[in-house]
Design a binder for these strands. Structure first.
Lengths: 185, 185
DNA sequence: GGTTGCATGTAAATGGTTACATGATTGT
DNA sequence: ACAATCATGTAACCATTTACATGCAACC
């Protein structure tokens, strides 16, 4: 998905500034599935405005740069719907971790432990964040997507917890009990 | 992971041509986690050879271009081990599908059905392919990674199968209340 | 006779990230 | 005092994809 469409999507929900949109990709509902940096958002918004797909309301920012609130237009909504109609590119996962683990035999076991500990911690935190996510309104789309992300992360977490001993020779999971974090799954 | 490291990884397993490496990313064990196209592989191999990390054996190809078999050197193995030592970038999923589904209310229900049908079919085929994957030898790393991928794909498949009705209004599965939904369990 | 597989390579286009430039206000 | 938050924007840089160029052999 190009950044223009991504921005249009956020603006289809509510008016926002470039800064807001960036926050959305950093913390919002599907921050785990899409991303965009300032360096691509601002030019995208400019282009969308030039095409009449969004309008800008400039609020004088006093000291700061003027706050530019972007609002999607009817033609913008149409363009967005058309973009959604295009066949989606295949999902893809890019995982350096799995690449490293693939060659695990080349690394010291405690390094592997650290890597997996790190990923488990990250997944727990991500799951906790998603669980507490009030962001998506009770409409179906956002909830469905949130559930999808949760299902995948929970599966990844469970797999790592239950199979890490295969890789590191750590004691089998029988011993592993309650210690850290909020209750798993 | 940059393409040079990726190539080094494949070559750490066995000597290969650029073409072989491409096949590996297309069909091999972790084709789901990394990718590289010819346009990046060939220059990467050239650079690796220039750095003395691999050697080339040119077999005259008769009609075709000469087949260039690359073999990793000791210094290449060392460089690869060092690359594995670097902290991995965070895993990331890029999913146009979830973006589209997020805005599902803007699309006709049968379009949603098609999208989900397509993804389910794709996942089933991917899982079948991985299940039949004889590629990874019975060493721990490759099997662990294969299992990780399978766990994630199975979770995605199960979620889609069990929750698609939430999105499309399709009749709920007979065995209702399989309770895996976005609802916290 | 047409497609797929083998086999290499280059160059242009793509699309994005990173770094820079600016600077007041609020929180620790 | 120092960091983070708010807030915009440009430009250089980067890696990778895509398209092109070449061409035989095997299969259907």
């Amino acid at each position: 998905m190009d950044v223009k469409t991504l921005c249009l999507g956020v603006l289809a929900l509510r008016p926002a500034t470039g800064y807001d949109i960036r926050k959305w990709f950093e913390n919002g509902s599907f921050s785990h599935f899409q991303d965009a940096a300032f360096g691509s958002i601002y030019p995208a918004l400019k282009a969308l405005a030039a095409d009449g797909l969004v309008t800008v309301t400039e609020e004088p920012g006093g000291s700061r740069p003027d706050r530019k609130l972007y609002t999607i237009t009817e033609s913008g909504r149409r363009a967005f719907r058309m973009a959604l109609e295009r066949p989606p590119a295949a999902d893809r996962v890019r995982s350096d971790l799995t690449f490293i683990l693939f060659f695990g035999h080349l690394l010291p076991p405690d390094r592997l432990d650290d890597l997996i500990d790190g990923r488990i911690a990250w997944l727990r935190q991500a799951i906790a964040h998603m669980d507490s996510c009030t962001d998506p309104p009770p409409v179906t789309g956002p909830r469905f997507v949130l559930g999808y992300g949760l299902a995948i992360y929970r599966a990844a977490l469970a797999y790592l917890e239950q199979n890490r001993h295969l890789l590191t020779g750590t004691a089998a999971p029988a011993a592993r009990a309650t210690e850290q974090g909020p209750e798993p799954s």
